[in-house]
Amino acid sequence: MKNILLLFISVMSFAQVKGVVKDSVSGKPIPYVTISLENQAKGTTSDEEGKFSINTQTGNLVFSAVGYHKKKVSITKEMNVFMQPKNHTLQDVVILNKLQTKTIEIGDYKNSIRQAFDNGPKIDAKFFPYLTKYKKTRFIKKITVYTDSQIDSAIVKMRLYSVDENGLPASDLLQKDIIVKPKKGIYRNVIDVSDYNLIFPKKGLFVAFEKLFIDKNKVEKTIIDQNTNTVKIQKIYYPFMLYNRIELSGIFTYYGGAWQKIEEKNNENKMVVKPYFEPAITIFLSN
């Protein structure tokens, strides 16, 4: 029995991959990097010191962070990952005549069913198409999202994406992480982005809130496995995102290292509009 136990511990130790993510130029650690097991719904996040761990043995890990080129690396037991920062050319300063005398909210659904979900190691984005009526309120002023958290210390990352030629999220519209600190309980978070002078893109944009798998977001609970009648430690990461159940042609999800649209088509290869759960996100536009 002793030999069997030692073998089990050895296997479990090998299954946990550890590493650190750093800037390839400065050598500094990169916090809150999105780390996905390629083509699988499994992943984690680097902590404030760029460190991460994930239970897996084979395959590739895909690393994604604001301001850096995405990187795919084969899994080894100890990983030192260096990400290359993107080069951003300085643009001419443009004086924007923002009046902010008129504000409209878009993306709200008054009669939707709103529910909280633990969306796991994936990112769900909400698409906001451009409409001609936004011409007079083209500046993105605020973004709101509903969260549910059982702890006060939880944080979540907000990302805004442009739209690629396939209608999927492309590059980040902001070149820095926007970290949101939700209050405990069910809460509507309002994030002021007016200082970034973002103009609503003509192709539309995506807004996503990304769960961070770090210690300050973690709660551990002791549970009884009903199948094996054994005691297990359940790890829960807050906050949960709230979703609207509405009629859509599909939803946009990032997992396994890539964005994809989850949709259903009929026999004529046309998209079927059906109830989906979409993140409860809205945008305030101003003139």
Rank of each mutant, 00 (worst) to 15 (best):
F82G: 02
H88R: 14
R188N: 15
K157F: 01
F63K: 02
F252R: 00
D108Y: 13
Y130N: 01
Q84E: 15
K203D: 15
F139Q: 09
D108A: 12
L7Q: 13
Y109V: 09
Y276S: 01
S13D: 09
S36H: 11
N39F: 02
I233S: 10
K22T: 14
F277C: 03
S53C: 10
K98L: 13
L248Q: 13
V21F: 03
G120S: 07
S46E: 08
I30H: 08
T222Q: 12
L61P: 06
K110A: 14
Y238S: 03
I143K: 04
A125C: 08
G256Q: 03
A125M: 07
Q234I: 00
N197S: 12
F128G: 01
K181G: 03
L7C: 09
V190P: 03
E48D: 12
Q175F: 10
N166C: 06
K42F: 10
A125I: 04
A15K: 08
I233Y: 01
L285C: 04
E38N: 08
Y237Q: 10
K235A: 11
V73T: 12
D152P: 00
Q150G: 05
F14S: 10
K202H: 08
S149Q: 06
S112G: 07
I140M: 11
L99K: 14
K216Y: 06
F284L: 11
Y161K: 00
R138W: 03
I236F: 06
K202G: 02
S153F: 03
F139W: 13
S153E: 13
D47S: 08
E268M: 10
I151S: 06
Y146V: 10
E264Y: 08
Y254V: 00
I106Y: 04
S194W: 01
I281P: 01
E210F: 01
N55F: 13
I178Y: 09
K18W: 04
P182I: 00
T132R: 12
T137A: 09
T144K: 12
Q115E: 14
D215F: 12
K216R: 15
M158P: 11
